[in-house]
């Protein structure tokens, strides 16, 4: 037990301030932010060069799909934050329920994306429909890939949670997953107005 505690990552750093989850996860999140920052620059360069294509493009997309995905992301993020807070309070069973709710809602994202792409293709919108749609597909697909990793992460953390892997004293894995999911949520909240609001 003492050896296990010694191996536990310290969440309080010497310079003050916590590291939610673990350092490795925050290296990953920082890399994810850098990757999307580069993709956003491509979006803004394309938008500045082809303003008409971007003005008209948003009108052709399904705003309902974008809104549903946003609400799914925000809600699953909320449920997972509740799971972390419940675990901190020592409410393990509640924490598992919140995590299951977060997983179910998160699974709605790929379903909504599939329906959106089906709708797009039925309306003749594909990756070759113009610069706006090329940028839309690569950015939203990229986000879907990151969200899929997050969903797999939720599944892994849920299995560990069910087998008693977390406690009120040690919930680093759960918090690392939550941090990744919140970061992925922040990225979607930036993508949403780029394609579905600004016309």
């Amino acid at each position: 037990m003492a050896a296990e505690l010694a191996l536990e990552p310290r969440i309080e750093t010497e310079t003050g301030g916590r590291i939610p989850g673990n350092k490795g996860m925050w290296v990953g999140i920082t890399c994810e932010f850098v990757e999307f920052a580069v993709l956003f620059v491509v979006y803004f360069v394309a938008r500045a060069n082809f303003p008409d294509a971007f003005q008209q493009g948003a009108d052709k997309l399904s705003r309902e799909s974008g809104t549903i995905i946003t609400l799914l992301m925000v809600t699953s993020s909320f449920f997972i934050a509740c799971s972390v807070n419940s675990m901190r309070a020592g409410l393990r069973r509640q924490s598992i329920y919140w995590l299951v709710a977060g997983l179910i809602v998160a699974l709605g994202y790929p379903v909504a994306k599939y329906l959106e792409i089906t709708w797009n293709l039925a309306h003749g919108i594909n990756g070759e429909s113009g610069i706006f749609f090329t940028v839309y597909y690569y950015l939203t697909f990229n986000h879907l890939v990151h969200a899929t990793w997050g969903i797999l992460g939720i599944l892994w953390v849920l299995v560990r949670h069910l087998f008693g892997g977390y406690s009120a004293e040690d919930y680093h894995g759960l918090e690392a997953l939550a941090s990744y999911w919140h970061a992925t949520d922040i990225i979607w909240l930036i993508i949403f107005p780029m394609f579905y609001v600004l016309a």
């Binding site: 301030g17 925050w26 939550a178 949520d185």
Partner: peptide, 18 residues
Amino acid sequence: IAHYFIEAELTHAFIRRV
């Protein structure tokens, strides 16, 4: 999200800045 879900004000300065 940073303030209430991640509790950024409690985190290490690097994470806050990122």
